[in-house]
Amino acid sequence: MLLRRLLSLAAATAVGAAALTGAAAPAQAAACSSTSGVTVVVQSSNGTSVRCASGDPGSAWGALQSAGFSLTAVQRFPDALCRIDGFPKSDPCVNMPPASAYWSFWHAPNGGSWTYSQIGIKGWDPKPGSSVGFRFGSGTAPGTQPATVSAPKPTTAAPRPTTAAPKPTPRRATTAPNTPRSTTQAPSGRTTAPPATSGAAGATRAPNAAPGTTPTPGAASPTASPTPSTPSSASPSATGEPSASASESSSDAVAAGPTDGRSSDGSGGSGTARLLGGGALLAGLASAVAFVGLRRRQAQTSV
């Protein structure tokens, strides 16, 4: 059980986040359309969110991050996931979450079925085209089927994929956030293309999304929208602007993640003060112990 919980990570408040930012992420608001990305399914009592982490993330943790989820680790076991997008709030994230309320981590090959992962979230390297799933609860599989995707020959107009194709490969999305503004634009262009014929977008997407997300009640119905789960997906109108901003924010999050974590703890002032204070306290206590021990020994020898 402990192992299961250790392996579990978090994925969460998909709905809220999806409605606000995530849903607008470029080509990420639904299962991946080709084998050039990892489909990320996050399910909790707040709803289900299916997104695509483009490229080949190095770990399931990285896939969640590049799909635009914000993650919180367990303080004592930083390889374990505690919260996804701030859910659950009630868990203080110091000890391992209880076996009845944790993010269980599942993975599935392309077109396969969910398998409870025997490997930690930071240790699992998802293959492009496969799926990773996170369900909050007591270790049941996600209700959404894993994605079934075909080789990177999308069904959209022939020329577009070629412009879009380069994008998936930059798994170094972290390095790219600023400079190649145009390239981040490019994928959005791919989603933008449909808005003119937004019906067409849904239609083209349908073949991919539909088989993938059929069984879930919430997910299947609005097949037309990229984020099937959220009816509020004003996202389909993921036109150029919002998508660009969202892609920016998500890639920023990825880029910021590793760096600002380190820098924040380096904000030395209070840290060194605490170190000095704690050290002084312990030194005082240790000298008190030594003093009492010596006095006691002298008293005993004098008796």
Partner: peptide
């Protein structure tokens, strides 16, 4: 403040000094 009873590990940092517990 449960986090004050542990050590920040993910970025390693100086642990807190919770005065009440001390």
């Amino acid at each position: 403040d449960a986090a004050a009873l542990g050590v920040p590990l993910d970025p390693l940092g100086v642990p807190a000094l919770p005065l009440l517990a001390l």
